[in-house]
Design a binder for these strands. Structure first.
Lengths: 202, 202
DNA sequence: ATGAAAACCTAGTAGTTAATCGCTTTTCCT
DNA sequence: AGGAAAAGCGATTAACTACTAGGTTTTCAT
């Protein structure tokens, strides 16, 4: 009969609870960064106590790992890798920009804020972003290289440079878009960069 | 005779004291961001107490303003505006990248971390970055437009897009460079982007 | 139905933060 | 030399942080 506190009648479906926390984590880390985003605010958003949250993720770093994993899971689906032509892989970057701008602005914010924060070597997500950049840039280098081998790349274009710059451009556009969303179209700018690189239509 | 604390024999030259604090502020805000960088750490770096620091800047936001102003003061000198040909203004962006990479990596870090953090509308530097981006992008739009009028811009290149993308590329390259400085040359990548845009040598 | 495990709570800990108060010391101008 | 202003100090405050301890409630498989 001790009935402590408010104690809602039920704990709600357990299935999506972890997911709910991760969604809230994306929002909060996107808004305030990792170091300045608080567990308290995340817990509040899912209607839970801070201690209750730490039942699902034993500490803040673990929650961050979960948030980043969820983010990846979503974006990767937009970049086709297997079987599809290489130019389609490159187009995937544009597709991700398009999709994120319309449906997941929170992910854009999260990426910008965390990638900048994580440039510090001691940041808990430092290695994650290092790995992620080498992975995605490598993916694009391969794609450009194959496109070049197929004779569809304009002379003088270096696959390694084009790949790195495409990713950099995408990142940089995100900052400007977050500051003033109405003043630019990220996908359009990316296409403008890519179009003159190929001998075929893009 | 009350001689409180350690009390060094003298307070050192006043002239550069404020400057010293700003320099330390750049380092700390670059490393930890604004919201997570502490006055305590900044004070420590200049060998002063936190209260002593707040004698020079009455609060944290005011210190941030000072840091950003100092940063501007340094970068702007590298981008010639008056009299010089427009193509030289565009080259200024490359020059800044070159200079910062070699002599002021702290400024690169500061810019990346703060610009991302300040995308949040309630951030104390939000308006500053909004103004700054419209200014620098506008500066480049003008330059590209004049270059176009002089018949030195390749057909199909939109001054507005090229300007925005140049800045975005510069920003994005900084993140990758901070994560792994040895793997890319920011200035070189910028030149690679710019070269094909002009009908004249770049 | 029952017992174990999972989910969640309140309360508290030890730490950090920006900012304030009242004070002392140094510098600088006349 | 003297006095005011500038520069600095230690101590304190109130708010916030991640995280833990220990207890209660809910869920679920048997």
């Amino acid at each position: 009969m001790t009935m402590t506190g408010k104690s809602r009648g039920s704990y709600a479906k357990t299935a999506g609870r972890r997911r709910e926390i991760l969604e809230a984590g994306i929002e909060v880390f996107a808004n305030h960064g990792f170091r300045n985003g608080s567990l308290r605010e995340i817990a509040e958003r899912v209607g839970m106590s801070q201690a209750g949250l730490l039942h699902h993720f034993s500490n803040k770093n673990e929650l961050l790992a979960g948030v980043l994993a969820l983010r990846d899971e979503r974006s990767v689906a937009l970049v086709p890798i297997d079987g599809t032509p290489d130019i389609e892989t490159i187009r995937g970057i544009v597709r991700v920009a398009e999709y994120n701008a319309e449906f997941a602005p929170g992910l854009v914010e999260l990426h910008c804020v965390l990638s900048a924060e994580a440039t510090a070597p001691e940041h808990p997500a430092h290695q994650y972003f290092l790995d992620r950049y080498t992975w995605v840039v490598g993916l694009m280098v391969d794609a450009f290289t194959n496109v070049q081998a197929a004779g569809q790349l304009v002379d003088g274009v270096e696959p390694a440079s084009a790949a790195r710059s495409l990713i950099a451009l995408s990142d940089g556009l995100q900052v400007q878009w977050l500051l003033a969303p109405d003043t630019l179209d990220m996908a359009e700018e990316l296409r403008r960069y890519l179009r003159p690189l190929f001998t075929i239509d893009f």
